[in-house]
Design a protein around this nucleic acid. Sequence first.
DNA 1: ATTACTAAACATCGAGTAA
DNA 2: TTTACTCGATGTTTAGTAA
Lengths: 225, 225
Amino acid sequence: MSELKIQHLVTLTGLLSRGAKNNFVPVTTTSLGQQIHKSQQAASQHLLELEEAGFIERMMSGRKISVRLTKKGYEQISDVFNLLKNSMGAVNTIELGGTLVSGMGEGAYYMSLKGYTKQFKTKIGYVPFPGTLNVRLDKKEHVEAARQLGSKEGIKIDGFSDGRRTYGWVKCYPCTINGKIDCQLILLERTHHDYSVIELISETDIRKRLVLKNGAHLAIKIPTE
Amino acid sequence: MSELKIQHLVTLTGLLSRGAKNNFVPVTTTSLGQQIHKSQQAASQHLLELEEAGFIERMMSGRKISVRLTKKGYEQISDVFNLLKNSMGAVNTIELGGTLVSGMGEGAYYMSLKGYTKQFKTKIGYVPFPGTLNVRLDKKEHVEAARQLGSKEGIKIDGFSDGRRTYGWVKCYPCTINGKIDCQLILLERTHHDYSVIELISETDIRKRLVLKNGAHLAIKIPTE
DNA sequence: ATTACTAAACATCGAGTAA
DNA sequence: TTTACTCGATGTTTAGTAA
């Protein structure tokens, strides 16, 4: 990762933020210590060690110190920055894996109600094929990830009432199956305590398109942000 | 700086780069140890402590571990990233301070030679007012910064010969005086071993414009990059 | 005021090892 | 195989203090 001792990165960053990239800037070990939440003595030692390692240049005028980063020092901090940048950009998808199971058939019924289909048309752009794909998540961590998904923003289909009973909201999350088929993972208000089986809807009949039988394994990717 | 122990930042970054932002990802303490250049035991301990501090969630299936970052964990690493980002962007100017002194008068003579003025006109856009502003740098670190400036790229005015003698190159660095007047700091081949007095040229007569007497204090800012 | 030394307290690490 | 414990070695920080 780096020649730089990790503890010194903080100190180096403190110096950088004081403008020590190009200029010698005056630094007292006391103020630097406060900045890095360490003692005056620690700051003093860090400066000595950073100089020894060639990351900074120190210049004493009387008892005062001025410091600036060397090329090497700046490059080190820059390396760490890039590492962090790359790591942060790394993952913006949630990946789930599971087994296709037969639904109860109720999903198909509910999702084809006028109260829902009108909203689907405007909010996800199509009326779903009648019938949901039910996928059992086999791994603990995938169930947990699905639960986490529930706390994120999705496309909200509002609930409604037909006078006799009420129908809960549905949240849609665009995703892909096996990297090929675009579909929506839906979370239902009425079942939102069980994340071990998820439901997927799509414009076309996915079972037919992928020639899927119950027991087939599916990989589902959900982009986030 | 952060609630996060600095030593754990590396571990957290390692997890992040494995995609542990949204998904639980399987992690063995041995492989994590290798990734962060520490032992299996250290990695194990880091995970325990990171969980305790609320930065990650661990999930054990048998002897295997899956891990993902919590919101708090991601925010912490994101904070560090932003801190670094801000620090890195912080300073792109060199700042010098010094006292106005009377020049030898030779600067004025040399700079008004045809061999130079023709190049000034094309390379910095004007023919400088005849006469340079000499500024004595009073602080050690400013002299050092000026020396450092010499190793950077500037606008190069080539030397020339009039048949009897040769005249050295001049490097120009755009800068401002007291945040107001645009001018050029010039480094001369013939004097480039002494950085304790710098010379400034400008299109107009700076002494008059700023009503400067010898002994006046000047602040000079030189943008870099 | 300042830097930086010493010595003791504290933290971190890895070898060995249990489960 | 794993994870994670104990414990001795090593590294780091701080209090006290000299200069």
